[in-house]
């Protein structure tokens, strides 16, 4: 059997993580907020580590609504982009190494974004997960939820519509 031996799991995992890291850290605003992503297979969790510059109301204190919506939008855009890229990498249409080398794919563009503020953001780390409810060739609809200590008690949620980047060919 001349079947090609699969690559070791660690090699594949490392390459996927490197591609995700290149995608995320290529955006200055994401670095400004300090957002990181944790990957488990194709599932991403966005993490907003607490920082004093995120505070909106120093009296309570609470995280600024704008920092929260920025975090949710980043979680939605990267979540949506990664879901598309993941399929392309799995099908062998896209080489993860190309992303690592800096050939960053274009990100979806936000058409509209609606944020619900459910409770105030406490001065501690926040997490968010995006769910792509519809992903078409041109448009996508994404829902995202953010929580802090308790996964069951979301402190903010958002829905957004996005224009997908044009694929060459």
């Amino acid at each position: 059997m001349a079947r090609k031996r699969p690559e070791p799991v660690q090699v594949i995992k490392q390459r996927r993580d490197a591609a995700l890291s290149a995608l995320v850290h290529g955006v200055p605003y994401i670095n400004f907020l300090g957002i990181e992503f944790d990957r488990r297979g194709d599932e991403l969790t966005a993490i907003l580590p607490y920082d004093d510059k995120l505070i909106g109301n120093p009296m309570i204190p609470a995280i600024h609504g704008g920092a929260i919506s920025g975090f949710l939008e980043v979680a939605a855009v990267i979540g949506l982009s990664w879901a598309t890229l993941w399929d392309e990498i799995e099908r062998g249409e896209l080489d993860a190494d190309e992303i690592v080398k800096g050939h960053l794919p274009r990100l979806p563009k936000t058409i509209d974004f609606t944020v619900d503020y459910l409770r105030s953001g406490l001065p501690r780390d926040a997490y968010a997960r995006a769910k792509v409810n519809r992903s078409g060739r041109r448009y996508a609809s994404v829902h995202v939820e953010a929580w802090q200590d308790n996964r069951e008690r979301a402190f903010a949620q958002a829905t957004g519509h996005f224009l997908m980047p044009r694929r060459d060919g």
Partner: peptide, 15 residues
């Protein structure tokens, strides 16, 4: 938000 074009990220505009 987009280093290729230098366009400001939507998140900063929402803030």
């Amino acid at each position: 938000g987009d280093p290729k074009t230098g366009v400001i990220h939507g998140g900063a505009v929402s803030a």
